[in-house]
Amino acid sequence: MGLFTQSVQVTLSTAGQPLRVDWGGHSWRVCARPVRWYRRTAWWEENARAQRGAGAGLVDEEIWRLQVRLGARDAPRTVHLSHQPQTGRWRLINLPDQAAGHEGERRSA
């Protein structure tokens, strides 16, 4: 994938939605409704094994797009996280393609 990834800590709401993201000593607050999707991976290239019963997380990865900000008056930033349900790990990833304006998507008819 060639992405820059870094491990982060995420605090979830009772409904399983991210509330806070802790990284690099700072704690960002999620300030808009998170968007989640599943992106398929080329598992036949990346994985060593694909045995039956390997479970979820082989074919796709769970991606979150969050609007976060440090403080109430700071400008919100968009970050993308990858979540591994089996290990519970969250990683910050950089998705250049996804950068701008799918927010606009929701508003169009």
Binding site: A42, W44, A54, G57, L58, V59
Partner: peptide, 22 residues
Amino acid sequence: LLPDGAATADVLDAVRLLSPLS
């Protein structure tokens, strides 16, 4: 039935379309 089956579905698709996964 389960998420694990997705990989099998990929393989089946590749075979059905006679083309490698890549």
